[in-house]
Computed example of a mutant assay.
Amino acid sequence: MSIVNIDVTLRDGGYRNGFNFPLDYALRHAALSVEAGFDWVEIAYRKGSLLPIPNIGLTGRGDDEFIAAVAREIGPDRVAMILHPKNITEHDLPAMYAAGARLVRIILPAEGYGPGLEYIRQAKETGYTVGVNFARISQWSGRGIVEVATAATDAGAEFVYLADSNGSLSPVDTTDLTTLTKSVTGGPVGLHAHNNLGLALSNAISAVAAGATWMDSSIQGMGKGPGNLIAEQWLAHLDRTGTAATPLHLGHALELAELLLATVPEGTPSLPLPDLVLGRYDLPVEHRKDVVGGSHHDGIATARILATVR
């Protein structure tokens, strides 16, 4: 079984720094990512995240000029984008393709996913490799997964990603969800893990054991909240087991990690206390403002968080 790897640092890591990666860094990052063996580099959201972010930076906008610059650096066949259907129009997918993007992931909600299906069809007609992300999968019902996965596949989605946005899944949960999704679609399934409970690597291994063949990770785990599956650990694991779709070069991944830490202060790994609690109680990151009071590291804040979610 070969694993297709997507580097999501520039996109998901943007939650740490307002998506304000310097262009020169983004280009160097993408080049080293490909040299490390990533099949795709997901470089940006198209026109923002789920909720508006003031003064959102380069990798939160995904402008055509940025896509074109990365495509010149690493070739279009490595350039991936992701988007929320509510943020785009019918003009965006053709424009992104013309600029140099070749893979697009469309984020579908459990309800009200109809507009996303139309964009899946348009993306297929345009020529993209097309996948879907089921965000906050820990809160989906089994029936919902069956319904939306069937509809997305019928519309032309080539793979389905289970996104543990809240970082709440266990290895057993991940196994069950992967097995269910694969049985419904008959096609490739991927995992986008968050590390709120320190289980991202265990969940990734469990997903692959259950048949997942696509995997997201980020350098130093840089991503929303406590971050994602740590790419360096994941690539080292794949290198030992020989299960990557593309030859891996761990040295380039380590070089990239050093570059990130030297260039982007927000790339330093961290586990903020509220995010651990959000993971425990399966709450999305938007709830941080409701459950945090005072310092993230003192006992008073902890008590307030627990009192709120109990």
Rank of each mutant, 00 (worst) to 15 (best):
E286I: 12
K289P: 03
L201N: 03
N133R: 00
H91T: 11
L283M: 08
D12C: 09
G187L: 14
E232P: 02
S217I: 04
T308E: 14
L199Y: 08
D12F: 11
N20S: 14
G293H: 09
G242I: 07
H29C: 05
A257H: 03
Q139I: 03
A262K: 09
G211T: 03
D154R: 15
L32Y: 09
I137Q: 10
T302R: 07
L108M: 08
I106R: 10
I53S: 12
Y45D: 06
S206W: 00
K182M: 12
S202A: 15
R136S: 10
A212L: 10
R136W: 06
G267D: 01
N133P: 01
L180W: 06
G211W: 02
A135D: 14
T243G: 06
N5P: 00
V104L: 07
M1T: 15
H252S: 14
M215C: 13
I53D: 07
P115M: 01
T153I: 02
W40A: 10
I205G: 12
L250Q: 14
F159G: 13
M222W: 07
V104C: 05
R136C: 13
M96C: 06
K124M: 08
G223C: 10
S141Q: 05
L197F: 06
S170A: 01
E266Y: 08
E111W: 15
D154W: 11
L254C: 12
I106W: 13
R102W: 02
L180H: 01
P85W: 01
T268L: 13
A257P: 05
G223W: 12
I106G: 09
G279E: 07
A209N: 13
Y281I: 09
H237M: 15
L250K: 01
V104R: 12
R136E: 15
K182D: 07
D173R: 12
T59F: 04
A209K: 14
G299C: 10
G211S: 01
G62D: 03
L256R: 12
Q220D: 15
Y45M: 05
R61Q: 11
G221F: 11
